[in-house]
Design a protein around this nucleic acid. Structure first.
Lengths: 226, 226
DNA sequence: ACCTGAACACCGTTCAAGT
DNA sequence: ACCTGAACACCGTTCAAGT
């Protein structure tokens, strides 16, 4: 029976540890060591407490992760509603991408957990408001298109870090690339370029390109204002 | 010291279990129960063998996951190079999306593992060929834009399944929605719609919309042919 | 060459018992 | 109300020992 933390009544403010303390510790550990290395026991150790104590504040590890996910989503300032829609939505997308690159552990969580926390809601509400204000007939479709591009780009960039970490000092990669280059030259040369050291800058450029294309396509579909 | 299965020499064909058997079992279990429930011990049980036996064929669980990821990537037929680029790239994106929706466990893996296997390479090589043939000055940028849109859409849809699974029978969701509707009416009504039962169809429509916008933007940037 | 059996250091979660 | 201590059923990985 799947559920979500956000559906339960808020716990009373307490003299004990408190939920926020758990979440702060979890986010810090997540940022430092990644999703795979986070364990309830590590959070407990970080807080100088026994594992069992955590279960007073949180029913399950997934609940804690839900809270951590929404917590970092709060880092993005709600986009300003004023000004022209294109700049506003573009800036919103860029801020969201930077947030996700700062907290890459949040990406896999979005496919596993509800993600209906208050900060997620506030974020998408603001974006929906901009799209509606611009006159788009289906604001959720617009926001989804942008959101998906951002998440996909952040996920790909997180994945690139792993390909890159094995490329520098390892010449087994060179022989693998040489072997694939015969059948698939274009992909092999793209991978070779991926092993270079300006990955972050190139990812930035490519995201900007994709975002511009998407916004152009959206603009072309905007009905004329009355 | 991170590495990848693909950099190691191929293991000899053997009379024993064989790598392919492990991978087939892993993919089947992954499809049935998801990433979180996959364990080496379950794979071993599925094959009627002891856990330790698996480590003769695979150095680590992550290696097995790398193999499983590339295995399902082989399900997508390489896009046909002939015909006009827009239809070819659009069909490619749609096939990739369907594949990822069939194997949602592959999505989080792409942010954690190298993903440089032969099927991944073949897939992107074919897409790069189409973009290059169309005359785009930077084919990787084109393929990345499409790929990211696909992955983001698939990830969001996988996440929606979780929000939906708690919504049907639970009226705590109704009170949560009511409470957020005051501050964030647009997002709340979008979430309410997300609880309806045509999620898959609406995700299909929205992905088609985003894809069309993106392709329009790309087409507008295509230099005139000589 | 391939596999078993048993061990090691971890997990998430539960729950009596303390304070 | 909050936390400890200890237990339970799991993990991934290693490795001697068997065949």
């Amino acid at each position: 029976m799947p559920s979500s933390v956000w559906l339960d009544p808020l716990p009373p403010a307490s003299p004990g540890l408190g939920r926020e303390v758990l979440v702060r510790s979890a986010v810090a550990l997540l940022d430092a060591d990644g999703l795979e290395r986070l364990s309830m026991r590590r959070v407990a150790a970080d807080l100088g407490v026994t594992v069992g104590a955590l279960y007073w504040y949180v029913a399950t590890k997934d609940e804690l992760l839900e809270l951590a996910l929404d917590d970092v989503l709060g880092e993005a300032p709600s986009p300003a509603g004023s000004g022209e829609w294109r700049g506003a939505l573009g800036a919103h997308a860029k801020r969201l991408r930077e947030l996700l690159l700062r907290h890459p552990w949040a990406l896999p969580l979005m496919s596993r957990l509800p993600n209906i926390g208050p900060n997620a809601v506030a974020l998408s509400d603001a974006a929906l408001g901009i799209a509606a204000g611009a006159g788009f007939p289906d604001p959720p479709a617009v926001v989804t298109a942008l959101h998906d591009q951002v998440v996909g780009a952040a996920l790909a960039q997180a994945g690139l870090r792993h390909s890159r970490s094995i490329s520098g000092d390892d010449d087994r990669l060179a022989v693998y690339l040489a072997s694939t280059a015969e059948l698939h030259p274009a992909a092999a040369s793209a991978m070779r370029a991926g092993a270079a050291d300006d990955v972050a800058a190139r990812s930035d450029r490519r995201f900007g390109f994709a975002l511009d294309c998407l916004l152009d396509g959206l603009a072309a579909r905007l009905p004329a204002r009355p």
